[in-house]
Amino acid sequence: MPIELIDVSYTYMPRTPFRREALRGISLTVGDGEFLAVIGRTGSGKSSLIQHFNGLLRPQRGRVTVDGVALHQNRAIDKLLRRKVGVVFQYPEHQLFAETVYEDIAFGPINHGLPAGEVEQRVRDAMRVVGLDFGEVARRSPFSLSGGQMRRVALAGVLAMRPQYLVLDEPSAGLDPAGRREILGKIYRLHRRHRLTVVLVTHNMEEVAALAERVMVMKDGRVVSDGSTRQVLVEQADRLPEWGLRPPGVVRIAAELRRRGWPLPTEVMTTGSLARAVVSICGRTDAE
């Protein structure tokens, strides 16, 4: 079952001179088992949007349903729905609070009333996904960690709840490049194997090209484009600048080579596919 937004609008500080319309009549469906990327400039409304997915913001107009059940009916239902939707926010260190890394990650599972053994298993699994060494880090204070380590703890805390929907707001900011690739790779595998639904908010177009199946572009509180990754990043590459975005590096390089006469196919979006295409073309010219 999906997350559905029907004609959702949200304005910060309404009825003041500082009012800002963050979302303007958004309707969308996040399908079950999808890997959706949400892109757009800073201030385009992405973070406001995902705060509606787990009821953190209450729409001033329109409504939000999770698995067919409307949010904001009563506390008990909201609590239940919130369990299904795990959100990692943009500044995850603000989500940390416990005295040890272990307690921080275990908080959700304990709150769900899971037995201690199961809690520990979940903490260990989550730490493995985010690349934190249990023996080294579990007993430390989360506030004694480096920036990237804190981000990993916050991510592990959400993963340990085993949500059905995983919503990530700029998850790779502050992560080292190898960690970024590894963690997103593992999340991608969870998505493939267990049909975990993932919503990825990111500025990193390479990540979008490599992972997402569907891409939504936001601008000024509206969805201005929504389609398959190839449709948005390749076929609409010329329109991306209008939305304050740039195509991924691979798409740019491929376009430049095409302009210079290289017969590259339009599917080329990732490093691997570009390398293969270039090699096959060079092989052909060698053979002539």
Partner: peptide, 15 residues
């Protein structure tokens, strides 16, 4: 070292 190289360098390496 837990890092990567800029995309053009990565592509050049693979090629």
């Amino acid at each position: 070292l837990g890092l990567a190289v800029p995309l053009p360098a990565e592509l050049a390496f693979r090629l």
